[in-house]
Simulated assay, not measured.
Amino acid sequence: MLSFTRSVPGTSRALRDDALFAAGLAVLSALLAAFVADGRRPDLLAWALLLGAHVPLVWRRVRPMPVLLAVLGCVAPYHAVDYTHIAAVPVGMVALYTVAVSGRPRRALITGLLLVGVMLTVNVSVSPHQVAEVMRITGWVVAVLLLGVYVRIHRQYVASVLERAERAERTREEEARRRVAEERLRVARDLHDLLAHSITLVGVQTSVAAHVLAADPERLDRAAVAKALDDIADTCRSARGELRATLAVLRASGAGPEPDETRDPLPGLDGLPDLAEAARTSGAEVDLAVREAEAPPAVGAAAYRIVQEALTNAVRHGGPGLTIRVGIRVADAALRVTVTDDGRAADDPSHTPGFGLVGMRERARSVGGTLEAGPRACGGFEVSAVLPLVPVGLGGLR
Score class of each variant (00 low, 15 high):
Ala188Pro: 03
Val187His: 05
Gln205Glu: 02
Ala176Cys: 05
Ala196Asn: 05
Arg167Asn: 13
His197Cys: 06
Gly203Ser: 02
Thr206Val: 08
Ala176Ile: 08
Asp190Ala: 14
Ala176His: 07
His197Asp: 03
Ala196Gly: 04
Ile199Val: 11
Ser207Tyr: 01
Leu201Arg: 02
Arg172Thr: 09
Ile199Tyr: 07
Leu191Thr: 04
Leu195Ile: 09
Asp193Met: 05
Gln205Ile: 01
Glu183Lys: 01
Ala165Ser: 14
Arg170Thr: 09
His192Leu: 08
Thr206Gly: 06
Arg177Phe: 14
Arg184Gly: 12
Arg167Ile: 10
His192Gln: 05
Glu183Asn: 07
Leu185Cys: 06
Arg170Gly: 08
Val187Pro: 06
Ser198His: 01
Glu169Ile: 07
Arg186Trp: 08
Gly203Trp: 02
Ala168Ile: 11
Leu201Gln: 04
Glu183Ser: 08
Ile199Asp: 12
Val180Phe: 08
Ala209Gly: 03
Ser207Lys: 02
Leu191Gln: 07
Arg170Leu: 14
Arg172Ile: 06
Val180Tyr: 10
Leu191Ser: 05
Leu185Ile: 07
Ala181Ser: 13
Arg186Thr: 12
Thr171Glu: 12
Glu175Gly: 05
Leu191Glu: 15
Val180Ser: 12
Thr206Asp: 03
Arg186Val: 10
Glu173Pro: 09
Arg178His: 03
Leu194Asn: 12
Ala181Pro: 00
Ala209Asn: 00
Leu201Glu: 04
Ala165Asp: 13
His192Lys: 01
Gln205Val: 00
Arg184Val: 11
Val204Pro: 03
Glu173Cys: 11
Leu191Phe: 13
Ser207Pro: 03
Arg167Phe: 14
Val208Trp: 01
Arg167Met: 14
Gln205Asn: 01
Ala181Glu: 15
Ala176Ser: 10
Ser207Asn: 12
Ala209Lys: 00
Gly203Glu: 02
Ala165Phe: 14
Ser198Thr: 06
Arg170Pro: 10
Leu194Lys: 03
Ser198Tyr: 03
Ser198Cys: 11
Arg179Asn: 08
Arg179Ser: 10
Ile199Ser: 05
Ile199Thr: 12
Arg189Cys: 08
Glu175Arg: 09
Ala168Pro: 03
